[in-house]
Nucleic acid binder design. Structure first.
Lengths: 344, 344
DNA sequence: CTGTTAGCGCTTTCAT
DNA sequence: ATGAAAGCGCTAACAG
């Protein structure tokens, strides 16, 4: 059923020219007599001919394609970031392969190999193994082998022993803004919920939180530092644990907005009001943060900035130009209605 | 910097065999002496050699790749559906190209061309132009030209004059279930909110709603049938319009869950309680439906079923096997807490 | 300005 | 069981 493929040879024959000339009008890389061009263009349109990009890439040894590896396209953080990055890549002439690993390390490996075989020109790596605080050495080796052939940019991650180019959100300062905000609102009993130990972004956020509190001379109650993951469900879980405590915090910082949503849900169900009884803040500023009642105060990841920078660094690498080893993207505090001043 | 590519010739030379033999161990398509195989495998591993899939695809005239065209990867409906489909495609040996058009018709055209050039074996089309009730003839022509070369499956859409294979959710019966539910709960003053006229899924849903109501001898108040889009914001907008009315419905069916969320948000802000004052139901069962208070009663799209069927049909088409012209996927009602019995 | 030719990396007859 | 050779569709020297 599939119509036989029309090739540049067919076009050439019908237009009474050589394939090379057809190629020239296709690429626009050499002068062709206007008259000849016309003739060729006509035939091309007649057959709706499209050049085979596989053949083209094979010749050029570059595919004008960028691969994305990410753990979960369903998570707004990733889908938003991908959306920004992809749009920018497209402007720069690159199409993208999206590899959604569904939080599975094996899939990460498979996709990595697949991207190598597909001859992508570069890879943007988000989440997954580059977020483990303790790098698995096997994965690191695999990563290095890939990086010998293909430029890779890590977004919000790193791997011990792997000297990659990194673009990352300034999570430390994001948390600092949140802690300062709560402190200014008179909160002293502050908890940190969500995330997972051993995942670097969680560790960074928690440590920053603890350090800041200590600097202010406020001790952190360890019962209030809980985390089992990054999902809404996980937020519900830790909020449940918190409610079992006699002594509870008056404010909590959540590892991300999903966790904050879960926490707010459970608190509300329990009869507490956010922000009147407990202040809750999140991280990421996913689109839901503004919609989930009462509107979540959070820290924006500045998706466009983050995504575009990642692409720019990668494209520089692809073109063997200079590129910053590490770029830190500033965050911004987004004030909404999920926290308020504490008054006994 | 980029290491020179190792090819099958390099492997052959180092293993003292011909490229053909290396190819044979790579594909496993012909017998090779175990001893020879060993030797070759060793060299392959030594260099971490990966075959160039571009060259392979060029030869085979098939890329083992499926393209997805979709309007918005940020929308949970699409990201969830893609996740299901993609996983299934992978099991069948296909990798996927995701083309996120960001609700832009021009992008649709560009991506369509790009997929042709990239020699994808098939295309899954979601949303966008296949959702216009009045098909743009230019787009239809473009679609047809593509379909002469590449099998295409439409998911939840259709184009007048384009004889495509279709896999779709049974939206009619989904709406019927919702209307019946509300009727059983004694509601008579029911509205339909969200969606956009001229978008087929909206038209189908609205028409089904109106027809059912008429069948039951209940007249539909036209002021209660409002829609400006599919987003949360759009739900907020129409809810605002509804609140301006003196005579308001006691229940509303929303074109999708996003709209329902927007509606609930505004109603709540206005001081009304869902479901006590107004019942609200949605459509899609995105993951948020269970999390957004009070928990949204909705109709599930059965994502896995829908996605896998679409892939199955497409793969059958690719392999020139029989495939259903149109497959209808049943929906299921998901009861939560956003509606209740009406009692004056 | 245009045609001839070689080759990108791989696979598969066709011989041996 | 293995090698030699042609070809997938395209492009870029190199001639003319």
């Amino acid at each position: 059923m599939k119509k036989e493929n029309v090739t540049i040879y067919d076009i050439a024959k019908e237009a009474n020219v050589s394939p090379a000339t057809v190629s020239r009008v296709l690429t626009g890389n050499a002068k062709v007599r206007p008259q000849t061009t016309r003739k060729i263009v006509d035939v091309i349109e007649k057959y709706n001919f499209r050049p085979n990009s596989l053949a083209r890439s094979l010749f050029h040894k570059q595919s004008k394609t960028i691969g994305f590896i990410l753990p979960d396209i369903n998570h707004p953080f990733f889908s938003t970031l991908v959306q920004s990055s992809e749009a920018h890549a497209l402007e720069l002439g690159y199409t993208t392969f999206l590899c959604n690993t569904r939080n599975n390390s094996e899939n990460e490996s498979k996709y990595l190999q697949s991207l190598v075989e597909k001859q992508v020109d570069g890879i943007i790596y988000l989440g997954g193994r580059i977020n483990d605080t303790d790098t698995d050495q096997e994965y690191a080796e695999e990563m290095k082998t890939v990086m010998e052939r293909i430029p890779v940019v890590f977004v919000n991650g790193q791997m011990n022993g792997v000297d990659a180019h990194i673009v990352r959100t300034d999570e430390e300062s994001g948390i600092e803004k949140l802690v300062e905000l709560l402190l200014n609102l008179n909160h002293k009993k502050i908890g940190f919920l969500g995330g997972k130990e051993g995942i670097s972004s969680t560790d960074v956020k928690r440590n920053t939180f603890v350090k800041m509190m200590e600097n202010k001379g406020i001790s952190v109650n360890e019962d209030w530092v809980l985390g089992t993951g990054f999902s809404i469900e996980s937020g519900e879980e830790v909020a449940g644990q918190l409610l079992n405590l006699k002594d509870r915090p008056t404010a909590v910082i959540c590892a991300n907005d999903f966790v904050a949503i879960g926490v707010i849900k459970v608190l509300t169900k329990f009869g507490l009001t956010v922000p009147d009884d407990v202040s809750v803040v999140g991280f990421d500023d996913i689109y839901l943060a503004q919609h989930f009642p009462p509107g979540i105060t959070t820290v924006s990841q500045n998706y466009d900035h983050l995504g575009q920078t990642a692409i720019n660094v990668l494209v520089n690498l692809i073109n063997e130009k200079e590129a910053e080893r590490e770029t830190v993207i500033p965050t911004s505090l987004v004030l909404r209605d999920s926290c308020r001043i504490f008054s006994e």
